[in-house]
Nucleic acid binder design. Structure first.
Ligand SMILES: [Mn+2]
Ligand SMILES: [Mn+2]
Lengths: 147, 147
DNA sequence: TTATTTGCAAAATGTTTGCTTTGCT
DNA sequence: AGCAAAGCAAACATTTTGCAAATAA
């Protein structure tokens, strides 16, 4: 899939927002993440998707770029129980969603709104804890695997 | 800390429930987990706590035992963002709790009741997904580090 | 120009595995 | 006795790092 012009807009916004040197490699990695906004990719999957485009970027660069994006809060890291971490772009439209993970087929479904509305205030009041972000993973069986 | 007689009761219950060969090593590992029911230990921390008792159990055995306990649903595995996984016993009294993780000092606080009461039915109805267990991690700053 | 970033290979880390010996039951 | 588990070392997979060469600004 070719990066759409909308994706180009997203890319430009991100580049400005980040204020880092925009190298060829970083643009490619970002474009892969934008094109796969609904997916959850390992570093190695990013590497492979770049190769499909007849290009090669070293793993070290991929990891270092991801680290920057994590720092900037543009990418989030997941551990879905496989050995490798998975990454996904987190921009407005998909902020604060939860994940349903099928223990049989590995399918990941995204949902929202499972936390109590007042959870932020509740933990601040009861524990003095100030939440900056959270991760809710729900394990179980998807529609197909439930039979 | 010596394993209390209550802990011995817990141990006996678990041993019966599990129906596996009760070796010396497995008893030791279980006792460490029971004594640290409120904590979250890495494989290496379990190893060290055993050493404090002037005993040594191979890492392979520790991992293999943990795997069994995970399988039996007696232990749960956490990824709190450090490189090593953390494990904790999950028995009645502390089932289904959430974790607040301080990004500054690393402190972990346990809480409960942050999910909507009907979340199970909601995802089953809306997504056809049957939840077996879940993990809610909340990152932020604890009381002390919030200043 | 010059400070940053890349790529490669080597290292580090956590976890798993194969195989022989040991020990439950 | 006989099968299952432990220990050790070696293998593995993912991630991180050092350093020389390349490159964005
Ligand atoms: Mn997602
Ligand atoms: Mn806990």
């Amino acid at each position: 899939m070719k990066t759409s012009s909308n994706a180009n807009q997203v890319m430009n916004d991100l580049m400005e927002k980040m204020d880092i040197r925009m190298t060829y490699q970083r643009k490619i990695i970002l474009s892969i993440l934008i094109d796969n906004i609904d997916k959850h990719l390992t570093a190695n999957e990013i590497y492979s998707l770049i190769k499909v485009k007849n290009d090669v970027i070293g793993m070290a660069t991929i990891y270092r770029t991801i680290d920057i994006l994590l720092d900037k809060g543009i990418v989030i890291k997941h551990d879905f129980g496989d050995s490798a971490a998975k990454y996904e772009l987190e921009i407005e439209k998909n902020k604060n969603h939860h994940h349903l993970i099928c223990k049989k087929c590995g399918k990941v479904i995204e949902v929202s709104g499972l936390l109590k509305e007042d959870f932020y205030e509740k933990i601040l009041r009861e524990k003095g804890f100030q939440c900056t972000e959270y991760r809710l993973k729900i394990f179980g069986y998807c529609d197909k695997c439930r039979s």
